[in-house]
């Protein structure tokens, strides 16, 4: 079991199993969360990782800039350590960007078309 702290919900803490998605775990605990596709493709359930280690290898929605900004897709993410996260739209301050005002560098694109990140 890992402990998830919701930093923008008065640091509410929940015990979760690692093998289930954080979305399913937190919904079962009664946390009110937005979600859409439930397969990691639509970004509705995005949250921001403040601290901890996760596995979200199944997500296909985020580009590398969003990942660098800490975003995780709750419906497919599993916690590998205790984690602190911000949830809900309040955590989306860096999620959306006007693509004409702030272009993406090649390494900022989604993994399937992005340039490899420099080590």
């Amino acid at each position: 079991m890992m402990t998830i702290t919701l930093t923008n919900r008065d640091n509410a803490r929940y015990k979760v199993m690692c093998r289930r998605s954080l979305l399913d775990e937190l919904l079962d605990h009664g946390v009110d969360l937005p979600y859409g596709c439930r397969y990691g493709g639509c970004i509705t359930c995005a949250a921001k990782l403040i601290e901890g280690t996760i596995d979200q290898s199944a997500q296909v929605a985020l580009n590398n800039r969003q990942i660098d900004n800490g975003y995780i897709i709750l419906c497919v993410v599993g916690a590998k350590t205790d984690c602190s996260i911000d949830i809900g739209m309040e955590s989306h301050d860096l999620l959306y960007r006007n693509p004409f005002l702030e272009p993406l560098a090649p390494q900022d694109l989604r993994a399937d078309v992005g340039a490899p990140k420099e080590a």
């Binding site: 596709c37 493709g41 970004i43 580009n63 693509p99």
Partner: peptide, 18 residues
């Protein structure tokens, strides 16, 4: 693809034929 347009619009992906 839904996985492309649902998260939002990345202009650069047009050039990558997405």
């Amino acid at each position: 693809a839904p996985n492309t347009f649902m998260p939002g619009f990345d202009l650069e992906e047009v050039g990558h034929l997405k």
